[in-house]
Design a protein around this nucleic acid. Sequence first.
DNA 1: AGGTCGATTTCGCCC
DNA 2: GGGCGAAGTCGACCT
Lengths: 239, 239
Amino acid sequence: MGPGGLRVDSSLVRLVVATCQVDYAGRLTAHLPMATRVLMIKADGSVLVHSDGGSYKPLNWMSPPCTLREGEADDGRVEWTVTSKTADTLRITIEEIHHDTSHELGVDPGLQKDGVEKHLQELLADNPEMVAPGLRLVRREFPTAIGPVDLMCRDAAGVAVAVEIKRRGEIDGVEQLTRYLELLNRDPLLTANGPVQGVFAAQEIKPQARVLATDRGITCAVVDYDALRGIDDSEHRLF
Amino acid sequence: MGPGGLRVDSSLVRLVVATCQVDYAGRLTAHLPMATRVLMIKADGSVLVHSDGGSYKPLNWMSPPCTLREGEADDGRVEWTVTSKTADTLRITIEEIHHDTSHELGVDPGLQKDGVEKHLQELLADNPEMVAPGLRLVRREFPTAIGPVDLMCRDAAGVAVAVEIKRRGEIDGVEQLTRYLELLNRDPLLTANGPVQGVFAAQEIKPQARVLATDRGITCAVVDYDALRGIDDSEHRLF
DNA sequence: AGGTCGATTTCGCCC
DNA sequence: GGGCGAAGTCGACCT
């Protein structure tokens, strides 16, 4: 508590509707001609410039940490200058302010998610036979020098099988698995029963990714997330 | 103009500050506990749920096209339901509205960008000698079965040179160029004077990408965007 | 601090 | 409209 009972309020959001022009200079340069837009200024000084369309991405913005300075342009118009430590600059030249309010929000409890890749990995770790029949899990997040393999398994014949899991299987995922396989195949402990096999498992596999995988001897496995969740639920109900 | 002089206003943005709980079910499920947040409802019905922190990405959102329906929950509280054609649902349960205004924005002229990869590619196409001395351009966006090569060139000795351009050179770009080279080296027309050479050109090349490129016999070229733009400007000034 | 990888990525281009 | 690559990607996690 500060002097005089004043409390520093760090969770204030300012909503402004203004006719403005926006110029950004940083990793690129970008320009927005004069028009009416929504400006959101968050507690950390970050600024979002929204139009009424598009999706959630602003037309222009400044990421925190940054500071907003209110000044005056040569022609007397109000000018906001937002600067970051990395020398990025966002300049907002204001012709007219139509709305300007500030609101205290308080601390946000945060978002709870379910159904992302990590969850899919957990489900497949519990049910490796859904990836390929006869597969047994050796280790989840099996470490290598260039990163962890999602699932390391062995098939019925004792051959090592590296499983790369994606929500959506694209070409990058195949490259990633290829790099792992190249490295894993240098390990005599893994190749004792033959070369390490690769399985690319995803809820959806793009055609080009499938072509590249097949070309490299990698097996593709499309997994049904809902079915998998159903299996896992019923298993847990037994205990 | 509609009957009675009423005009359909399609560029309206609604700004709401409310204590609310948010539940999303679609590609994943997500939950936001009750707290005070900023809600932005755009003209196309899309909804953004912002807290006072984070960057420009909302905590939760619904992408257009979608429709917002205002209803009432079992306990009598106001409930907004946003639905899209793909069966995604965003449910906002409102405890209290602290602020609620609507604003007409008009049509946005749109964003002008400068300095992205495409622009860098244009500049290097005009000045291939900035990539490597003696290089002559054969074709920009040279087509292959797996995608276009940014610049196809020949060096002073007539050897084909494939140039992959990135703003920031990372490992993925080296993989991409490697795939192209593999394919290009199957074409007798290109390999008549020796194997196709690869050049990885970027404003900045990450150490790991450089190592991988070198390991594969790919030349790295760091290009100075500002200098390049200067050259191009002065060239155009001659005409 | 730097690298890697996921994302309800979104966005834009080309087929 | 689908596929694919870029992004001022952002953010989380790990070394």
